[in-house]
Design a binder for these strands. Structure first.
Lengths: 242, 242
DNA sequence: TGTACATCAGTGAACGCGCGTTCACTGATGTAC
DNA sequence: TGTACATCAGTGAACGCGCGTTCACTGATGTAC
């Protein structure tokens, strides 16, 4: 946000120059503040410092603006997940865990995008662009699940990689929606959402036959995690069972 | 819905007789139709066949009506979960699975309640009645988790029962929100949400050390499930891994 | 059993408001020659 | 390099609409005696 945006029309001249972008930013702010349902076209125009008719040059209506935001959200989400996955480095299980945490981080850091993507009531299946963006994001999780499936120890029955990916998605989504959202509807929790999800994923992976002692694959040297990070007990991230 | 409700004022007389209830029902219908954000006080009044001022005799404002619905939703939810849990019969694992399915069934059958409870943006933590109702519902899951924890085979590390309960909650919530919602925002899935969740919970339970061959505890006689129900392969509910 | 009165639930008209959308317009920008 | 013109982006006034909320009111119900 450059300071020029704050100046309003006095210094702006007749043409805004970057109104489409400004409207998207304004809407993001409004959604973060009042929820996807609370934002209005007129309000976005006002925040961008233009007349209420101006947005119609760039978006057919409110819904088109909202789906643009959802779409951009999925793109950023995909980028974040890709970065977290880091092609499975230093080892598949660690990277997999990191993807889950990235999911939470996104919900927390970008409540407006999250809300537009998952809670705005937009029928994702009916909007081809949106659906494609959503699927590209999910594809990151799916690719990670494929790698995990290929690595799974034999002997334990396991579902297809697609289903594993859907499991991870729904775990992450459940924790994020209930406990890691960036707005007032977040529920309080006697632990961090990250620890909750980490334990959940670890138990799940153990159910697939993976050994889940931390750093079991012996790649400690490559592990980027700082020493002293929480949840490092050998028995898992939840302390000692009684 | 009795036919009398449809008649409007002509046969109703000056007093409605049951306006509070009628407003709740009307709001439920509107929320199911247009989402929690889309329903208006005036619309509810219109549907109940009274003037726009009448609702103010029963609810301070729109928000109070909305939280009443959320609260009632949590109460019905609690009842449904309690019934599904059935005090752990015929065996704990089976009953536990059934609780998960009841979660999905609720999301599907009562999209309006579900939306008011989880997606309306109501800050549950700030409304004591609502919070209490929400916690009573969660307590059912928690009690089930306690029983499960007490039963867990020794040797496998496991988290406190509270955390296990939160895991089940978030799994169910994730699957329900993404794939089993009763409205247009539901995402398509190449399998049933029920099967997805069942597999997820089974893998999770296996990760806790439970044997997960179906009906492992030998109480088949008491099992209420009809023969021929899907997902009965011995290796789990997802078919044969390749 | 009847009457007087208090209480309650819903009326209907009115208000100010902000929204979405349209319209003819105008100032700015880009381009052909 | 200059000019004419087309195109584009934003204006501002206006519209109809439905909402939330208030108000004095009135019809119905219940109750004391």
């Amino acid at each position: 946000m450059s300071w020029r945006k704050e100046q309003g029309r006095a210094e702006r001249g007749y043409h805004h120059g970057n109104l489409k972008e400004a409207l998207l930013q304004a809407a993001l702010g409004l959604i973060a503040e009042k929820g996807a349902a609370g934002f209005t076209f007129a309000d976005a125009a006002r925040m961008a410092g233009v007349s209420p008719a101006a947005p119609y040059r760039h978006f057919r209506d409110r819904d088109e603006l909202l789906s643009s935001i959802a779409q951009r959200g999925f793109e950023q989400f995909e980028a974040l997940l890709t970065q977290a996955w880091d092609d499975g480095r230093p080892d598949t299980v660690t990277a997999f865990e990191r993807v889950g945490k990235a999911y939470l981080a996104f919900a927390r850091a970008e409540p407006a995008y999250y809300s537009a993507m998952f809670e705005s009531g937009l029928p994702v299946d009916l909007n081809p662009n949106l659906l494609a963006a959503s699927e590209r994001a999910f594809a990151v999780i799916r690719a990670a699940a494929e790698r995990l499936a290929a690595l799974a120890p034999p002997g334990t029955p396991r579902p297809p990689a697609l289903m594993m990916a859907l499991h991870i998605w729904s775990m992450s989504h459940g924790v994020a929606s209930l406990f890691a959202r960036g707005d007032a509807a977040r529920r309080k929790l006697p632990m961090s959402a990250e620890d909750l999800l980490e334990a959940e994923v670890l138990i799940y992976l153990r159910g697939l036959g993976f050994p889940t002692e931390r750093r079991a694959s012996g790649q400690d040297a490559a592990d980027k995690k700082p020493a002293g990070a929480p949840s490092g007990q050998p028995s898992g991230p939840w302390g000692t069972p009684k």
